[in-house]
Design a protein around this nucleic acid. Structure first.
Lengths: 222, 222
DNA sequence: GTCTATAGAGGGATAGAC
DNA sequence: GTCTATCCCTCTATAGAC
């Protein structure tokens, strides 16, 4: 991990940094979680030490244990907050039962807006989720994965049944492609960068639904 | 990491396991690299210890240093072998200058076949590449990323210029979607599973080029 | 090529003062 | 809420015997 000065430095703009990262940032705990999330996302959960987090927060490592009982608890708080948020939105969208194309676009938008609000958490979920999910404490990560898959599988199958999506589609493969396309945005997205999250959503919906090629299909009976 | 018995166990089928994983497996070094690659891919580079690797190989950790001078050297050998292989194929395909659609399909195929041959390496490249690339020793990972991007950017732009791909395409965004879709296959693919690598390639080419929706576009002048 | 034995650094976490 | 001080463990890597 990067070196940091042994002793604090500017505590000044930490609260605003927390707000910019999309968290409420009311208490010290949330502030520390934002700092930890940034470090976990940048350097990986396993390679980030509690001393790294304490240094970035301008305190000593022992002091972190006044707020959290373990390093795992920090990752837990970061991930569960993000997942509750995004899954609640998935449930609403699926329950609305709009036509498949509209539901599809709504799920893409909801995913990328959640990514914008919880960027660090999404990166951690992507990079470290599989290993964390092996721990009992993070069993809910497996459930969350199942709920994502169920939502997308439902829309894709419904789209095929209703004649909106290609009959030749392999639903599990399509889900994996979509999942990869959406969540990995978190690893390169920069808030305030070239494209806003809704702009990316529009481009992605267009590419995923209609493809990158113009008109012409090779097989006619799709 | 998972617990393993303190003392060796079956050395019997290790060579065949190495062959099944797609490596030549001629010497002891390659055998150990295959074992290390599997563990790095499953548990992450940072969380996999040299003792884990030694245990899986049925030797003690000190003995590994007869074959490798460091843990980094193992990751280096695994990743550089994979990247040399796949980038050589990319160069051939781009140099052939087939029509954009054909080049596109060839790149997808080459990527997924390389993924099949070097599955563990691809998983490591995906999960740990960013952090490893920060080390001087792994600077070539950054170069490799640039060459992947250059190849895809060239095809995509040429496809637009030749009228095969949509004019509304944002090339960098399209590249990122494609990159995510292809490399993440390594994290769920099982050799001998439901779909072979070429079958996945066909499905992915169809979805990426022509989309998952049937006919009808919303905007006509794409 | 593997083992024994261990150095030396850095990790997560704790107890109690302030 | 933070600091001091430190425990105990695990990690990578080394030296030399077999």
């Amino acid at each position: 991990m990067a070196q940091r000065s042994k002793r604090p430095a500017a505590r000044a703009s930490r609260a605003s940094a927390a707000r910019a990262a999309g968290r409420a940032g009311t208490g010290r705990r949330d502030e520390l979680l934002t700092i930890a999330a940034d470090l976990f996302a940048t350097g990986g959960y396993a390679s980030t030490t509690v001393r790294d987090i304490a240094d970035a927060a301008g305190i000593l490592s022992g002091s972190l244990y006044h707020h959290f009982s373990s390093k795992e608890e920090m990752a837990d708080a970061i991930l569960s907050g993000f997942l509750e948020d995004v899954l609640a939105q998935y449930d609403e969208i699926v329950a609305a039962r709009e036509p498949a194309r509209e539901t599809f676009a709504a799920l893409v938008s909801a995913t990328l807006l959640a990514m914008d609000r919880h960027q660090s958490a999404v990166v951690i979920y992507q990079n470290d989720g599989r290993q964390l999910a092996a721990l009992e404490r993070f069993a809910y990560l497996r459930d969350a994965g199942g709920r994502f898959e169920a939502a997308w599988t439902e829309v894709l199958q419904r789209g095929i049944d209703e004649g909106e999506f290609r009959r030749s589609l392999d639903v599990p493969l399509a889900y994996r492609l979509i999942r990869a396309a959406l969540w990995t945005v978190a690893s390169w997205y920069r808030s305030g960068g070239e494209h806003s999250a809704p702009e990316i959503a529009d481009h992605y919906v267009a590419m995923l639904l209609d493809g990158i090629a113009r008109g012409r299909r090779k097989k006619a009976k799709d």
